[in-house]
């Protein structure tokens, strides 16, 4: 058991050296979050992971259009806006992934026949965009005070051609990677809420990425906790 561990840590170190001083193999970039920065939405948050930044605003529970009304739960709508140009297929696909994740967590049954609208604006994309969107979405939902079963976070893993695992990859690392996997995990049981992958990987690698994502999720949830502790502290 000793040997593979050593080789992996060596590989990680090498990957770190390759990509310059930016991100060593297995670490998360610096995080920053600001909540309640917009006055119009009920909840808002901006989330930064390295140079990737997403701004999220949540309206709800509010009046719903009759055509979209669901009689026993809230209608959740997610709008993702790209920075340049009009939203395309990629945005629609991400919107859907984010909506499905949120629907699993938000207790919409407590607010039947209402709408919850979430607008996400990409401020800058430097890799792991979907993970950052998910994190921003969660912080905005928390800020809006919507009832949730658990918190959630997004973690992106990249596997390069040698099988080295990189957490929270930058845009360059994502481009060079053989496979990019994004997971959404919940905070209570650290279980998988959503996963989307691109590229080729074996089932063993999938499990490895998932385990690494779970380890990274610990850090993200600790970040959530500390930032909320600071926000609701008295001093």
């Amino acid at each position: 058991m000793e040997e593979p561990m050593q080789t992996e840590s060596k590989l990680c170190a090498e990957a770190g050296a390759d990509s310059g001083s930016l991100v060593p193999g297995c670490s998360l970039r610096h995080f920053a979050c600001e909540q309640n920065l917009l006055s119009r939405p009920d909840g808002s948050a901006s989330f930064l992971q390295g140079d990737t930044s997403v701004l999220a605003g949540v309206y709800g529970p509010a009046e719903v259009k009759v055509s979209k009304e669901i009689f026993n739960k809230a209608t959740l709508e997610v709008i993702l806006r790209p920075k340049i140009g009009l939203p395309g297929v990629a945005e629609k696909s991400r919107e859907r992934l984010i909506r499905n994740t949120c629907e699993a967590v938000v207790l919409g049954a407590l607010h039947p026949r209402t709408s919850i609208t979430m607008v996400l604006q990409v401020v800058s994309d430097a890799g792991s965009l979907l993970a950052c969107c998910l994190n921003a979405a969660c912080m905005a939902l928390v800020d809006a005070g919507l009832p949730m079963r658990a918190l959630f976070c997004g973690v992106t893993c990249a596997l390069d051609s040698e099988g080295t695992l990189t957490l929270d990859p930058t845009a360059k690392q994502e481009k060079e990677a053989r496979a990019v996997l994004t997971f959404a995990l919940d905070s209570v049981e650290r279980k998988l809420l959503m996963s989307t992958t691109k590229g080729l990987y074996s089932d063993a690698e999938l499990q490895q990425c998932l385990a690494a994502a779970q380890a990274a999720a610990q850090h993200v949830f600790r970040f959530y906790r500390e930032s909320l502790q600071r926000r609701y502290s008295k001093s």
Binding site: A32, E34, L37, E205, Q207, A215, S227, R230, R231
Partner: peptide, 21 residues
């Protein structure tokens, strides 16, 4: 008070392979 930052955090992924296995 609404803003919070965290520096780069190393994640321990040494036991990932075992876990996956």
């Amino acid at each position: 008070i609404t803003a919070f930052k965290m520096e780069k955090a190393p994640v321990d992924t040494s036991n990932v392979e075992e876990k996956a296995e």
